[in-house]
Design a protein around this nucleic acid. Sequence first.
DNA 1: TGATTCTACGGTCTC
DNA 2: CGTAGAATCA
Length: 780
Amino acid sequence: MKDFLQDLNPQQREAVCHIEGPLLILAGAGSGKTRVITHRIAYLVHSEGVPGPSILAVTFTNKAAGEMRERVANLIGLSDWRRAPLISTFHSFCVRLLRRDGDPLADLRPGFTRDFTIYDDDDQLALIKQIYRSLGLDDKSLPPRSVLSTISHAKNQKQTPEDFYKKAADPKASRLAVIFEQYEARLRQANALDFDDLLLETVRLLGSDEATRLAYNERFRFLMIDEYQDTNRVQYELMRLLTVSHQNVAVVGDEDQSIYGWRGADIRNILDFERDFPNARVIRLEQNYRSTKNILEAASAVVSHNTQRKGKWLWTEAGGGAPIGVYEGWDAENEALFIAHTIDNLLRDFPEDRVAVLYRTNAQSRQIEEALRRYGRKYLVVGGLSFYQRMEVKDAMAYLKAALSPDDSVSLLRIINTPARGIGKTTVEQVEREAAARGVSFWAALRALLEEGQLSARAQAALSAFVKLIGELHEAASSGMAVHQLLSLILERTGYRQMLESDPSPDSEARLENLNELLNAAADSAERGETLAEFLDHAALVSESDQLDDQAAVSLLTVHNAKGLEFPVVFLAGLEEGLFPHSRSRDSADALEEERRLCYVGMTRAQKRLYLTYARSRRRWGGGAPESSFPSRFLREVPSHLTKRLGMDHTMETVDLFAERHEVRETVKKNLYTGKTFNSIDNIAQYFAERAAQAKSHTAPSAPPPSGPPVSAPAPPPPARAAASQGGLRMGTVIQHPKYGRGTVLRREGDGDDAKLTISFPGYGLKKLVAKYAGLKVDE
DNA sequence: TGATTCTACGGTCTC
DNA sequence: CGTAGAATCA
């Protein structure tokens, strides 16, 4: 048997060997936190004989969960899926629980059924806007976004609309209460849960239904929570409920890395753990294995200016390393060029190093992208618009959601007139008013109105055609038709595909490609035996940081997205007052401390080299006048003996990026040297591969892992197969893809149009495509 | 109604 | 600058 305690320091070993009872691991940055969690799981399974499925490990992102799953699999061996522990995000875990065992919730939440839909924040926003319309509110005085965050906060504090009514002192506050109440009512009407509800309702269910609670305590005898400092109060309660009968809970966190206060992360959860669990064991991991001494000292010096901390001092055996580079650009373009230039030089000397450029706000990425393009360096932007947020993809998903449950008013309204079918604003508003008056869903009101024949002839005709269409799709969805077939049917029957095909604008071509990619994903999902609901769940739960590709040489991402990651070289850009720390935190000491922690997180991502950059002037948006800015206070907090001021290198280009912006943009369109990829499809494929593997643990435990390598992982070319020679696209054929360009067919599964092809595209990696949808041409 | 143009306004961070 | 919603025209 493998010795899971080897290569661990005494504190890590102590944490790994702790078996029963509460455990708090205070793990500094780079102290081997993930290592401890994964080794502890392996140790429990192999040395303590704990069945894998009795262990639940919870993380915040799918990315972290996936990585952990992989590392655990490497430790305990992939061969036997029955022994796999459940490693999941909070939200996925709750969805899973509610889908499987959520029935008792119907007592607490009238109308709830297990096939609820999930509203993501675009859906939530749409819902708020619907409410505004029905109440005749304008969104000037109460911006929908801020209302949404107020509601979310309230829900996480377990406040109800009634609480709002009670304490409402002015008209604005009582209006807020009305909106809140309406919001909740409409969610229920649509049998929809928002992200907060996923957690909240799970907590309510476990709190009130003893049988379910006991069953889950029994099922998961060991609970582990990663990034514990970022849990909110509801997640905390979930933890308590899942461990009432055994208290076998190990949490790992670092108060210096708590950066989600704005979404309800409650630092008390970590500061009070010892009080809530008096018998808790506390272990500190203070040896850092990641960074050089200079980097570690600089980061520690910055964060030591905070008052709200338990206090610890990380140490390392590593040498000092390179000094920390500090660069002052005269404007943001110059800063970006410096970064690109330095990266270019570094990668020439150390081609193996991965580089990350971290920034406070997503908007900063553009200039850096443009500078990198000038140097012809490939990069990957993490964040920004994700695949599932694109208009056409959202539309298609809305059709799927509406087909699954027409009562989902947000989805129904999204697509009621897309493509245009003569149902205008006036008609929609009429139906909305009716729905509000009768207290029913939009769909119900629509059908009632049609039956009563109270509409104008024109509206009547348009709406009844629409009702017929949705009815038909609903029937198709209920018949258990495979997801990609249903989607295909939708695109044809609704005329959506036609609409795009007849649109001459260049985006519509890209949109069609995206829909084809979605079809591919759906086909994959169907092949794994997933239901429509499962497909939709996944789409709602994937997040932006899940796109991160470890192999990319240069990654651009926000500091928030960088949590939990490490890179040999890190640039922390835009260290200016008002940007980092962000202006929004100016008047709150707590918020400022959070900014400082964020800075600490950013700095400690670096292994070998760290650069801190800022600009003396920056334009807030495109055409506006440049505004002068001042170096961030965090820069002053870095001891000067650790830093080295860098100047312009004479080989650095001094072009005016702003002036040639137009040209650069044209280049992007031609896709000449951008390395930007939206590889969410890869993640979808990978996700489904993992899901399939997990599902097999219940049915056919000895089955081999899913065929075919996950597309995003670097994989050796699959072995040649005889079947691959039939049909037009055989192995080795060079083809042309509308988006990825020229590629080579490596593998083929199935025949004819339904064949699935694994194709290698230089610059994009391996893609798995369904021949029918991919739009491939044989390259002569 | 639907398509097009115009204007105003915003800009952390996320499951 | 980019987008969403308003205003305007067909």
